[in-house]
Amino acid sequence: MDIALIGIGKIAIDQHVPAIAASPDFSLAATVSRHGRVEGVESFTEIAELLAARDDIRVVSLCLPPVPRFEAAAKAIRAGRHVMLEKPPGATLAECHALIKLAKEHKVCLFATWHSREADKVALAKAWLADKRLTSLQVTWKEDVRRWHPGQDWIWEPGGMGVFDPGINALSIVTEILPDDIHLTEATLDVPANRQTPIGAELSFYHPQGARVGAIFDWRQEGEQIWTIEAVTDQGTLTLLDGGARIQIDGVEDAVKDENPLAGEYPRLYARMARLLSTGGIDMDLRPMIHVCDALALGRRNSVAPFIE
């Protein structure tokens, strides 16, 4: 199937373009971007131009920042195109629900992707936790914003989510691997004096079985980057490391190792999109987005030092 990629920035070039190139299901037929291009691929500057000129392209993958994403997705759906959304699926929950309603009306597929759920050991973690009683779960997600988001000022503006841009990856894993749903009870947000979105956050959650569940997100991390989820249960301790690429049970590393365990995330997303197209329907799990919105609503804000890139 021909597919169009909307928004040619860092994530598109680093992940989506190689994943599509390796896909047995899709061929990159066009792009839409005001600045970015993919060599050898037809390009447009506005999505309306693509939709008018290439009626043969029935699937679009949106890699735009969250704020402009809704308008582009709505145009594509109204034009009868199937839509794949980079995370987060929108800037607000209302937008996400509006897209679901629109997709149902136009009978097209809609897929909110959570790439971290496709990390190598996430499925194994989910299976291991399925029959165990959780005592506590702690997320530690610390990285250097200068390394991973250079020059991306949109993340500091309203709707950009700040540290929740990576933090929502952790929340997408947590909501995938836990047998029980959780919800936020309190949050503390560190917001730079010169920015609109947080650079750090600490979250606490309610768990229906009484387990202690918390998360720490920080974008000021220097040196080692940390993406860890530790789950203590009545039958041992599970630790996901490196964003789900590695797993330990009671400190023992899983013996089966992938040469490049994170490389499969986006290829697996495109394979899932292909399956969704074959069966029809909508795949829009909004639980990670709900946690972020709750944190922004309930969070106590601390003003911290200005962030200067």
Rank of each mutant, 00 (worst) to 15 (best):
A103Q: 02
K107Q: 11
E86R: 08
L64C: 00
C63F: 13
V83I: 07
E95N: 11
R69L: 13
H106F: 05
D120W: 12
V108I: 06
A79R: 11
L102M: 08
A112M: 07
F70E: 12
R81G: 00
P68L: 02
I100D: 07
R117H: 06
L124H: 10
A127R: 15
V83R: 01
A103L: 07
I100N: 03
P65G: 01
H115R: 15
W114Y: 11
A76G: 01
K87T: 10
T92Q: 09
P66I: 10
L129A: 09
E118I: 00
V67P: 08
E86Y: 09
I77K: 03
E86S: 12
L124C: 03
A112T: 08
K101A: 14
A112S: 13
A127D: 15
V67T: 14
C109N: 02
L129K: 10
K104Y: 00
H115D: 05
A73M: 05
P66M: 07
R81E: 08
E71D: 14
A94Y: 08
P68T: 00
I100E: 15
K104W: 02
K126T: 08
V122H: 12
A73K: 03
A103C: 02
H97M: 04
C96Y: 01
I100K: 14
P66S: 10
L64N: 00
L85V: 06
A127G: 01
S116K: 14
H82I: 02
R69T: 12
W128F: 12
P88M: 12
P65Y: 00
F70Q: 10
A125Q: 10
H97V: 05
K121T: 10
A79H: 10
F70M: 09
K75Q: 15
K75T: 05
G90A: 14
K126H: 08
E95P: 00
A103K: 07
A103I: 09
K126P: 04
I77N: 01
R117N: 11
V108Q: 00
L64K: 01
H97S: 03
E86Q: 14
A76W: 02
C96H: 00
K101L: 04
R81Y: 02
W128P: 01
V122R: 04
E86M: 09
M84W: 08
V83Q: 02
P65Q: 01
A73H: 06
F111M: 14
L93M: 15
L110S: 06
H97K: 10
P88N: 04
A91K: 10
A119C: 11
A76K: 01
W128L: 11
L124Q: 12
G90S: 12
L129D: 03
K75E: 15
P88T: 12
M84S: 07
S116C: 07
L62N: 06
L124V: 15
A119I: 08
T92F: 08
A119Q: 11
P88L: 13
A98M: 09
A76I: 09
A73V: 04
A91G: 07
W128N: 03
I100S: 03
L102S: 04
G90R: 11
L85A: 05
S116N: 13
E71I: 08
P89N: 13
L99R: 06
A74W: 02
E71F: 07
A91C: 05
A103T: 06
A112F: 12
E95Y: 05
M84D: 02
A79N: 10
K101W: 00
V108P: 01
A127W: 11
A98R: 14
I100A: 05
E105M: 12
K121W: 04
L124M: 11
K104Q: 14
R117W: 04
